[in-house]
């Protein structure tokens, strides 16, 4: 009897581990078919531009990661620095170089947000199992939650990934609860690319984060979306589509100068009422990365700024806008 109780206790003690442990092989079905990962991968190559963030969040250090942008030595942004520790993965720059990847001798190649073609998928699959974006999503349009969860599946940590996703959900829910005044207000994320201003549509990952806080994308932005669907171009001659209760400017490098130089911006209601937020390079990048590490970082940065902007009172100045010299 005692033995039985002991055995039972033992089972109880280990059962969480039993339920968490994920069985390999796993099969992941995706836009190019299905990929089988036979055993828990050790040498992970991350071809997604922000894929390394999710692996690092799960405690897995990729042996190679993809350079997106910015001037960080290891191509990793501040929110992921700590998790990377003193590891120095190979940084893959520019186009995908099949030979370079083959030489890394990977166990698995993650490529959900890399834009790889079917041809590249086939070539890479001869090196190691490859995970491209899931079926139903165009390049770079897979939602962050699914990317994060699938990343977990790849390394046998799906439940850990889910709990990290849930933590972000929990945080956005909290923010919604403590900010009832934000609900159903409009928020636009605007940018200045090339030589015209524009904004992200509600299909975009950045706008989706704001919608999880209760904000809506102004309808006119969605209506005038271009073919690619995730942004629209406005004209410097008419900035009215960008009017919103909160207007977040993505300004990186020389585009801040262009934003400042928009003559009609000063005539915008959002400007006069101090509703503009300037998302500097790091905050804009954190929102764009949409990863398990960057999103919590972005939320904490953004909340105090939104609080100051949404009141429609130009006297409560938004520090980031003051610093960027775009405040009223």
């Amino acid at each position: 009897m005692r033995l039985l109780i002991r055995a039972f206790a033992l089972v109880l003690f280990f059962s969480p581990a039993l339920t968490v442990a994920q069985e390999f092989p796993v099969t992941i079905t995706h836009k190019f078919g299905a990929t089988i990962i036979t055993e828990k991968p050790v040498r992970v190559v991350s071809l997604s531009y922000q894929g390394h963030d999710n692996f690092l969040a799960l405690g897995v250090k990729p042996i190679a990661l993809r350079y997106w942008y910015g001037s960080h030595e290891r191509a990793v942004w501040p929110w992921a620095e700590e998790k990377l520790g003193d590891a120095s993965p190979v940084v893959l720059r520019g186009e995908i170089n099949i030979e370079q990847i083959a030489a890394l001798n990977p166990d698995v190649i993650e490529a959900m947000w890399s834009g790889i073609t079917k041809h590249e998928f086939k070539l890479l699959s001869r090196i190691a199992p490859v995970v491209p974006s899931l079926a139903g999503y165009n390049d770079y349009q897979m939602p962050w939650q699914e990317i994060a969860e699938t990343t977990g599946t790849i390394v046998g940590k799906r439940l850990e990934a889910k709990s990290l996703i849930d933590a972000i959900y929990k945080r956005t829910k909290e923010i919604r609860a403590t900010h009832p005044d934000w609900q159903n207000k409009t928020a636009a994320i605007a940018h200045h690319w090339g030589d015209s201003p524009g904004a992200f549509t509600s299909d975009d990952i950045r706008a989706q984060l704001l919608s999880s806080l209760g904000f809506k994308t102004p309808e006119i932005i969605d209506r005038s979306a271009g073919e690619n669907g995730f942004f629209m171009s406005a004209s410097a001659e008419d900035l009215s589509p960008l009017e919103a209760d909160v207007l977040i400017w993505f300004g990186e490098g020389s585009s801040l100068k262009s934003i400042r130089g928009l003559p009609l911006r000063k005539a915008m209601k959002a400007h006069k009422e101090g509703r503009e937020i300037f998302a500097d390079t790091v905050l804009a990048s954190a929102l764009s990365h949409g990863s398990l590490l960057s999103l919590p970082f972005a939320l904490e940065e953004l909340i105090p700024l939104i609080e100051l902007a949404i009141d429609g009172d130009p006297k409560t100045q938004v520090p980031s806008s003051v610093e960027a010299k775009i405040a009223p």
Binding site: Y69, R93, G194, D195, A236, K257
Partner: peptide, 25 residues
């Protein structure tokens, strides 16, 4: 250009020519 993907965008917009690229300046 082939080796500097990131800078391509700035160049791409400059090289097509524009009468208003300078903006306020």
């Amino acid at each position: 250009l082939l080796n500097a993907q990131e800078d391509l965008n700035t160049f791409r917009f400059w090289v097509v020519g524009s009468l208003s690229a300078g903006g306020s300046s």
